[in-house]
Design a protein around this nucleic acid. Sequence first.
RNA 1: GCCGAGGUAGCUCAGUCGGUAGAGCAGGGGACUGAAAAUCCCCGUGUCGGCAGUUCGAUUCUGUCCCUCGGCA
Length: 312
Amino acid sequence: MNNQQKKPAVVIVCGPTGVGKTAAAIRLANTFGGEIVGADSMQIYQQMNIGTAKPTAEEQAAARHHMIDIVPPSAAFDAARYAEMARNIIVDLHRKGKLPIVAGGTGFYVKALTRGLFETLPEDKALRRRLREEAGQHGPGAMLERLRACDPESAQRLHPNDTYRILRALEVFMATGRPLSEHHRRHRFREQPFRTCTIGLTLAREVLYDRINRRVDRMLAEGLVDEVRQLLAAGHASSLKSMGAIGYRHMTDFIQGRLSLEEAVRTMKRDTRRYAKRQLAWFQAESDVHWRTPDQMEEMLTLVKNFLPEAP
RNA sequence: GCCGAGGUAGCUCAGUCGGUAGAGCAGGGGACUGAAAAUCCCCGUGUCGGCAGUUCGAUUCUGUCCCUCGGCA
């Protein structure tokens, strides 16, 4: 057995929101003796259930889920922490002979998990705040000029309007003394701790959008407004990353009187559709995805069966 | 049936004093290395309701027909 085969085998179920990843993952878990590792940047938050379409109690009883409900909505969380925690869980599952099934729509988290991120210092809040203030004072153009001085390659690559990435590049340089472009050149997503089989779930665009629209209506019927009210009442400001999630920010706008309910629902549906489109763009750019529709469950089972070292 | 107002992008509409048209919304494509449900970039050809006439040329003018919405019968 060579090195490649000793790596933990991991099945990944990715795709746009609302396509049916949870159901497919549960089926795979039950068939192959697996447990599910969520890859969703919002389902990690506790108390945010309806709007994140978190697996229900029944679904979580049908198959063990990890990486869900792991921090309160006020906590800071990011792709690096996700990758570290999820990797530990996967190694543990592998040791116990269970098949880890990563299921989720956050492409960046899946990538951080399976290919790693370059090494840098943990988030420095003070530095980040300082950079933001300076951007506010001197304007984004000045920040781009500063970046050009220490990391011309990144300055060239980034669009002048992408202030967020410009500040991040500056932050990396200031924290590590090396330009972001150099970190990228050394890293290049070369880590490969697992053997993976990636299934991308998709649907005809109009069918997917119809499902999304109806799922939003269902979320409202299930009490999304109350869920957001409770989060706000518990002191979770709308400036929190978690509260900026689709649905949560829309309902906050409604609750605080900035939007009518009708308008809040309309824009929530629209923004969910746009999000699904971005997810599709992300996963379609990945080269090793086996695309299936949710009704092709048998094909998915075969795919995973052939991927696993020995037949179950 | 008569009178009026309209029929232009998926939707709501603007516009062309005759040289084949553009906004908002919706939508499409893409990027993405510690906020990623975030952030950022790019994208507007559509029998200008049909047919006929005038004209070098009609979405624009004229006629006629169809459809929609008001009002009157």
